[in-house]
């Protein structure tokens, strides 16, 4: 078994009197594609927001294992930008691109936390800054080529077709060199053709050793992609296992379809 890179234990999130997440455990190992599924309102996106620092969880622990530094880092209480710096990058359920910027610039923003140039560098344009800038452009270009968006490079992001916008979000997240990539419903609103392309893309990214945690509604996509699945309902984890196990799990069927009533 690989080393788990993300370990979440006992995660609880209260909004006033409502418990959106209840004692949730989850782990992702290196190079794995893990899916988190559940009916609407189960708390999947809340989970993402807690992990990425947008919400502050009420209780629990979130630890990221950094291979390069060979130690565990607690993400608890970190700001979203610090979480990203540590190596978690995410996409959003409702697309959040920088819509007035070009496609390439969107990806270049992803390089922000891996580069350093500041006011003086910008003003003086010394050799180091220019090298860094070249590196940003080059890397962003390579990522876009990999994702298959290079022909849109200089388009304004909001003019892209829907599917391409979704892919651009993934490209932007990849530019931060994540240890773990979090995808929040990447296939939402896509047509079947786009979904197939997306599955191929995710598989390609994963084949390069990228660990991925994704939330998804499209069962076909989840079953064909993921190695392990966690199922949530009403903020609690109700099942976990391989796609095969999940498909036959009575608790999952109950959550999705309701209970069978004997006449």
């Amino acid at each position: 078994m690989h080393q788990p890179i993300l370990q979440v234990a006992g995660l609880t999130m209260d909004f006033g009197g409502i418990r959106a997440l209840n004692n949730l455990d989850l782990d992702v190992s290196e190079g794995e594609i893990v899916a988190l599924i559940g009916p609407n309102g189960a708390g999947k996106t809340t989970f993402f927001n807690c992990v990425t620092g947008i919400y502050k969880p009420t209780k629990g622990s979130i630890d990221l294992f950094h291979k390069k530094k060979n130690r565990q880092i607690s993400l608890l209480g970190m700001k979203p930008n610090q979480v990203t710096e540590q190596g978690l990058a995410r996409t959003f359920q409702n697309i959040r691109l920088f819509s007035q910027m070009t496609v390439l610039e969107n990806v270049m923003i992803g390089r922000h936390c891996r580069t350093k140039a500041f006011i003086l560098g910008a003003l003086l344009r010394d050799k180091k800054t220019m090298q860094e800038e070249d590196e940003i452009i080059q890397t962003s270009h390579e990522i876009l080529t990999k994702i298959g968006l290079q022909r849109y490079e200089n388009e304004i992001a909001k003019n892209l077709p829907y599917g391409a916008q979704r892919r651009l979000e993934i490209a932007r997240a990849l530019a931060t060199e994540p240890v773990l990539l979090l995808l929040d419903e990447p296939a939402a609103g896509m047509n079947p053709q786009e979904t197939i392309e997306l599955v191929n893309l995710i598989q390609e990214i994963a084949s390069e050793g990228q660990s991925i945690l994704l939330i998804e509604h499209d069962m076909k996509l989840v079953m064909s992609l993921s190695e392990r699945i966690f199922v949530m309902d009403y903020g609690k984890k109700i099942a976990q296992g391989t796609p095969e196990e999940i498909r036959n799990n009575p608790a999952v069927i109950k959550a999705y379809l309701g209970e069978e009533v004997d006449a």
Binding site: T84, S99, I109, C113
Partner: peptide, 13 residues
């Protein structure tokens, strides 16, 4: 353009 996405991309707001 987008403050939340910006932070999620690692920019210190």
């Amino acid at each position: 353009e987008d403050e939340i996405a910006c932070q999620a991309m690692g920019i210190d707001k």
